[in-house]
Amino acid sequence: MDWAASSTAQVFFLQECHQAECLWQWAEAATGAKPGWRGQWFYSPGTGHSQGCLVLVKPSTILQGCTQVQLLVDGAQGRVVRVDAEIAGRPASLVCVYAPAQPAQRAAFFGACLPACLPHATERRVLIMGGDFNCILSPDDKVGTPVGSTSQHTEDWVGSRSVGVDSWSGW
Rank of each mutant, 00 (worst) to 15 (best):
S151K: 11
A108C: 08
R38E: 13
V165Y: 13
W24L: 07
S138H: 08
C113Y: 04
L54A: 12
S6A: 11
A76L: 11
C53W: 01
L72R: 15
D74C: 06
P103T: 13
W41T: 01
A4N: 06
L71M: 05
W41K: 01
T67A: 11
G75Y: 02
S93A: 15
G46A: 08
V163W: 00
V11Q: 01
A92F: 02
A107H: 12
V57R: 00
Y98V: 03
R106S: 08
H120R: 14
T31W: 11
D156F: 02
S50G: 12
G144I: 10
I128E: 04
G39A: 01
G78E: 04
S6Y: 11
P146T: 15
N134W: 05
C17P: 00
L72H: 14
T61L: 02
V57E: 00
A9Q: 07
C117N: 02
D2P: 00
L94F: 03
C117Q: 01
S50L: 12
T67Y: 10
E86F: 03
I128H: 04
T8F: 10
K34T: 12
W171L: 14
Q25A: 13
V158G: 09
A116G: 07
H120M: 14
G159F: 04
S160L: 08
G36D: 07
Q10T: 14
Y98T: 07
A101D: 08
P45I: 12
Q68A: 00
V73E: 02
R161E: 02
F109Y: 12
W168Y: 09
D84K: 04
G48E: 12
Q152L: 13
V81P: 01
H153F: 13
W171T: 14
T61R: 00
C113L: 06
S44E: 04
E21N: 14
V83F: 01
W37V: 01
K58N: 11
V97M: 05
V143H: 09
V97C: 06
S60K: 13
A30N: 11
D132C: 06
A112W: 06
T150L: 04
G164R: 08
Q51P: 01
F12G: 07
R124K: 15
N134R: 05
L54S: 06
G78T: 05
T67G: 09
Q15D: 02
R125N: 05
D132G: 10
Q102L: 14
T122K: 12
R125Y: 06
R124A: 15
L56N: 09
G170C: 11
W3Q: 07
A92V: 03
A107G: 04
Q152W: 15
D141E: 15
P119D: 04
A104G: 10
Q70P: 06
Q15Y: 02
A116W: 09
